[in-house]
């Protein structure tokens, strides 16, 4: 089990690093999905099978698909030129130093903790469900309202006011003026 944890952790870190440094948005997203899957493995090892499932279903499944959907819609997945200057090695130095300092901070924090091995208690979905719908029942209601805000907001912001021609079709339209407009 321990070995699996370390392997999964390594995979997660590497794929996250690749995701945030990738030039191609689609590829980056795929790396991110790999990372989420390996984190899901870790959740399983830590005794949270329900969360492991949710991580795959909601995070990797729903949210990432939403991302892919938008990227496809905007057709920027293949755009490589945009960030070239930002991906020069020089750009990474300062943020990395900052992050390194934070890492040192975390390490010093961890040193101060009493060395302890986890008991690895498995908490089953049933327990989680009972807790969720008794103690945290109001929390569930509140998240419903929160999602409502998200829905109304996304509806209002996402709607197009006037017809906007898809970038891909713009060129076509220039040559064929009678080409039908396409809504996004």
């Amino acid at each position: 089990m321990n070995t699996i944890f370390y392997i999964a952790a390594l995979v997660a870190l590497v794929s996250t690093a690749l995701a945030i440094s990738g030039r191609n948005a689609i590829h980056a997203l795929l790396f991110l999905i790999v990372s989420l899957l390996s984190i899901s493995v870790i959740f399983f090892i830590l005794g949270a099978p329900f969360i492991a499932a949710l991580e795959v279903i909601v995070y990797a499944g729903a949210i990432m698909v939403l991302f892919i959907f938008v990227i496809m819609m905007l057709n920027v997945g293949l755009e490589k030129e945009m960030e070239n200057k930002w991906l020069r090695p020089g750009m990474w130095i300062l943020p990395s130093i900052l992050a390194f300092i934070l890492l040192i901070d975390f390490l010093s924090m961890l040193r101060s903790m009493n060395y302890r091995e986890i008991r690895g208690q498995i908490i089953l979905p049933k327990q989680v469900g009972i807790s969720l719908f008794t103690t945290y029942l109001l929390g569930v209601e509140i998240s419903a309202m929160l999602l409502l805000a998200g829905i109304v907001g996304a509806y209002h912001l996402g709607r197009q006011k006037k017809k906007v021609i898809h970038r891909f079709l713009e060129k076509i339209e220039e040559t064929h003026a009678e080409a039908p407009d396409t809504n996004l």
């Binding site: 109001l138 929390g139 509140i142 929160l146 907001g153 209002h156 912001l157």
Partner: peptide
Amino acid sequence: VTLFLGLEMLSISLYVLIAY
């Protein structure tokens, strides 16, 4: 839990309101 949910409810509404 309520701290986080309340704060997020406020924030998400504000994203929308700001860009309204």
